[in-house]
Amino acid sequence: MSNLGTALLIGLVGFVGPLDFAIGSNMLNRPIILGPLVGLVLGNLSQGIIIGASLELVFMGAISVGAYLPPDVIVGGVLGTAFAISLGKGVGAAIAIAMPIAMLSLAIGNLTSVIFPAIAHIGDRYAKEGKPGGITASMWGIGLIECTRRGILCFLGYYAGSAGMKALLSVIPQNIINGLQVAANMLPAIGFAILLEMIMNKTVLPYFFLGFLLSAYLKVPVLGVALFGLIIVFVRFHSDQNRAVVSTNGSSQEDVNDDDDF
């Protein structure tokens, strides 16, 4: 097959991989799965399986937890496997190629993701009109741009070779890439601010800071903060309930101590 045809098929693997996010995040986009697919494209299934598994072990830690976005394992894994098989250099070469490409793809992803919130706001407009179809459309819009971006990167990457990929990166000034990352790291605050505005009142305000401080000074993880919150809620509920029982019994003293029961 011609180089162009092969590159298109490699691009297709890069496009289909992230589609897994649309059908249940089934880990179909991991190197251990996409490696064999690349192997099929290049006519060497068993090498694809082997290199895919090796990359899987290398990229074990690269997974999105919370809001942290890891290097792009999809593009890195696909191109790493593809170059390793086509150049006949094996697993070591795959790892050496995959890592920088994964970083590059993350940087380009940060660049394209700047427009995603704007697309999401089209969804807001449809929600306001009671048209959920518009919400679905914005979801697919963002999702398909992501798939296309990765597909194109895999296609171009394979077509241009790893030297071409590096040249692509040098076009974008590092300052801009970092700046977009800095901005992206602040953006969750917008979502939190909107949520807070709905929930916030004088009663709950101090507890916002309690949650923040528990995390800041004591490094309590979010789960731990929620568990502390449960205790606080339980204690408040319980003492309020006791007070309610006491007052219905006829004793109208507001400041009755809960310990009077004993």
């Binding site: 916030m200 507890y207 916002f208 949650g211 923040f212």
Partner: peptide, 21 residues
């Protein structure tokens, strides 16, 4: 109130964790 307290505590912790400056 209980739901609110739990909610804002979690947002507080998430702000500290996820909003990075």
């Amino acid at each position: 109130d209980a739901a609110g307290i739990l909610g804002v505590m979690v947002i507080g912790a998430m702000t500290q964790n996820m909003v990075v400056v």
